[in-house]
């Protein structure tokens, strides 16, 4: 029977369609409808009105700028420290097993908990960090970084970097350990310094892993509002509002699901374009092998 394969896969397909596709389509449809939870007469189609409003929405543009800032610095620093940590853990030393386990611990901490922790650490009443920064001369007074009109974003970024380093460390360490040792030995005999070995052996081997992990983390972090909601709630004056937290605010504070959904679609489109570029880049890198 020609229809047999379809019959076998039908249960799974039906399940996927009902629990994933249907809500997705309904969610997307909100973007073109006037959906305000408290207004019983809302729900009518309004075409592209939401998108026109977004184009003029100053907070949205600020949030978009903040998203780039937040994502860029978070990913770059997580990657940098993750790579350094992976390189350190790749060398054999006494107690490496324990060190590895400890380094990967932050990953296991729930994001809300780590957000609360860091918020406390930044709070001058209970936390030490403002006093340290003041002592180092980096701050003129031991104030709360999270309420700084200029640098508030660094609070969640620091928390995020601390929290996300293990992800890069684990994946990069796995990639590092798959590099044959004798390549390094051959290069050492050929006269390569440790840095030259890193550049001509380690980096080319890591490149495909770097491309894929940076892409995954970028998409994830751009969508990741937990730490910001917990630590600053987008404040002060939307300085730390990113698109994801703005969507959250629109949907669950203002209860404007239509507008929130329209913003989400814009974010989705931007991230799709970005991912396509990275996938292309990775293909090129893999072909180089």
């Amino acid at each position: 029977m020609a229809s047999e394969p379809y019959l076998y896969s039908a249960p799974a397909l039906i399940l996927i369609v009902t629990v994933m596709l249907v809500p997705l389509v309904i969610g997307i449809s909100y973007a073109f409808r006037d959906m305000t939870l408290l207004d019983p007469f809302s729900g009518g189609f309004i075409g592209l009105d939401h998108f026109r409003a977004i184009a003029k929405d100053k907070t949205f543009w600020l949030a978009l700028k903040n998203t780039v800032y937040w994502t860029g610095y978070s990913v770059a620093l997580q990657f940098l420290f993750g790579l350094i940590l992976a390189l350190l853990l790749d060398k054999p030393f006494y107690g490496r097993g324990l060190a590895q386990a400890l380094c990967f611990l932050p990953w296991a901490v729930p994001s809300f908990l780590s957000g609360l922790n860091w918020a406390m650490l930044f709070n001058p009443v209970v936390g030490p960090i403002p006093h340290w920064l003041y002592g180092l001369g980096l701050m003129s007074a031991p104030d709360n970084l999270l309420s700084s009109p200029t640098h508030a974003m660094w609070g969640p970024i620091i928390a995020n970097v601390w929290w996300g380093i293990p992800f890069f460390a684990i994946t990069l360490l796995a990639a590092l350990q798959s590099i044959p040792r004798d390549l390094y030995e051959a290069a050492a005999i050929d006269g390569a310094t440790p840095f030259q070995r890193f550049r001509s052996i380690t980096l080319p081997f890591l490149a495909p892993t770097i491309a894929i992990t940076v892409m995954l983390r970028t998409v994830w972090i751009a969508n990741f509002a937990d730490l910001i909601v917990v630590m600053t709630n987008g404040g002060p004056a939307d300085r730390t509002q990113i698109v994801a937290s703005y969507i959250f605010t629109q949907a669950f504070r203002r209860l404007d699901f239509g507008y929130a959904s329209a913003i989400a679609m814009v974010l989705l489109a931007l991230l799709l374009v970005y991912s396509m570029l990275i996938v292309l880049l990775r293909q090129t890198l893999l072909r180089e092998r």
Partner: peptide, 21 residues
């Protein structure tokens, strides 16, 4: 001395060729 300063060349069982070159 480091390997590079001994002025020797080595051929490995696995060949250890640089795969990206």
């Amino acid at each position: 001395l480091d390997p590079k300063d001994r002025d020797i060349a080595m051929v490995f069982q696995s060949y250890a060729l640089y795969p990206h070159m």
